[in-house]
Amino acid sequence: MQNKNSKYGEIQLVHRMTVIKRIIHWSFFAAIINNIITGFYIAYPFLIFGKTPTQADSLSTGVLNSGETYQAFIMTWMREFHFIGAVIIDVIFFVWLYLAFFSWKEPLYKSFIPFGDKLEEAWRMLKHYFTLKDRPKTGRYQDPLNAIIFTLFHLLILLQMLTGFQMYVASFTGTSAVGAWWPWLLHFSTDWTLVVFGGLTGVTLVHLFIMWLIIIFIAYHVYIEVWRSVMWKEGDILIPFGGYKYMRNKSESESES
């Protein structure tokens, strides 16, 4: 133990994610996975229910038979779960936005300000990824590179929300069960997407494309957290599970000298 400590420095337990943030993290994850699957179905209905004989002759053209039309309604369910997932994502986005500024523990904006310094630190982190040297200290706070990437990711989510709501409001005819303010609000906040992306079809394609960027983000995010855990030996991957990570006084590159 003494040996290891002298090699890697003193181990310290650092609280990084509160219970609330962990709940947010995992419900966000579940909702996004749910929306990717259901969204794929909405774009390409890959299962055919209530199939006819010629449509069921291979796996790719339909495998499930639930009988009559009135018994199936798979698209309805897919859309329903897509909307439920979307509501969860929307709520989480706004909670994230709130916490990014007013979190008691660690508001995200502190990882940006002062802007110049943090940007430089992010750049150093990026260099560290490729040189494995000169690791900037991360311990008690979100490192700026992650903060920037998470913010970009949330901007993608925001764009996904806006394009999604534009498609959602398309079936409204001026009013709704909760009043005319609701479609009005959606039109007001999302109609610009029609102009920018070229009509509802363009909005749909953008929605589909951003999904791929989000999938790429998930892959990157998992990889880099595993990489950090392996390389830094500070248990970064444990943060969203237990809320804690370890911190060493000395980094490995220091100890190696």
């Binding site: 209905p45 055919i48 229910f49 010629t54 009135y70 309604f73 309805t76």
Partner: peptide, 16 residues
């Protein structure tokens, strides 16, 4: 209704 039920025409002239 067929849209909601997941019942789609897959090629011209098929059973669907």
């Amino acid at each position: 209704g067929h849209f909601e039920a997941g019942e789609y025409v897959r090629e011209w002239g098929d059973d669907g």
